[in-house]
């Protein structure tokens, strides 16, 4: 049985430049509050649009590490057998709660010896502006 049959992804089947399926994550207030409860990050800037706007923000913001977790989940959606060895994210600008961001990923490096690959990751808002930028190092086991 090969990896594809098992619902995984074989390293040999991955090409440089391959795009991961786009993903529209759930960043609704309920999802953000749920994440906040799990992590203790329930401050008003994450959970209260009005207070956030009063403080000069465009609205309540998705926790940076939730955005990071969303990007990791996109990798697992593409390759359920992927082992994410490193995830590096730069929080360039807020992702707004209840907005409709898009996650994208693309393979930008392959290391045959380690069976590992680098993936460029972006989380963009509706205007196409990159709000979270990152890379991941991923291994696809034999």
């Amino acid at each position: 049985m090969n990896m594809s049959d098992a619902g995984g992804k074989a390293y040999e089947d991955v090409e440089f430049g391959e795009e991961l399926p786009e993903h529209i994550p759930d960043v609704s207030m309920s999802a953000v509050k749920r994440f906040g409860e799990a992590t203790g990050m329930t401050f008003w800037r994450f959970t209260d649009h009005e207070k956030a706007r009063a403080a000069g923000l465009p609205g309540a913001m998705v926790q940076g590490i939730m955005s990071q977790g969303i990007l990791v989940s996109m990798i697992h959606r593409w390759a359920p057998n992927a082992v994410v060895h490193r995830i590096d994210t730069i929080f360039r600008a807020p992702v707004i709660v209840d907005s409709r961001p898009v996650c994208r990923g693309v393979v930008t490096d392959l290391n045959d010896e380690a069976r590992s690959l680098e993936i460029d990751l972006t989380l963009c808002n509706e205007a196409g502006e990159t709000r979270v930028l990152g890379t991941a190092s991923v291994e696809l086991p034999a």
């Binding site: 440089f16 930008t108 490096d109 890379t135």
Partner: peptide, 17 residues
């Protein structure tokens, strides 16, 4: 400090795409 791109991969990307 804030870039994650290797120059070799820039070249590869330009050619591939």
């Amino acid at each position: 400090d804030d870039s994650r791109a290797k120059v070799e991969n820039y070249c590869q990307w330009i050619r591939k795409k």
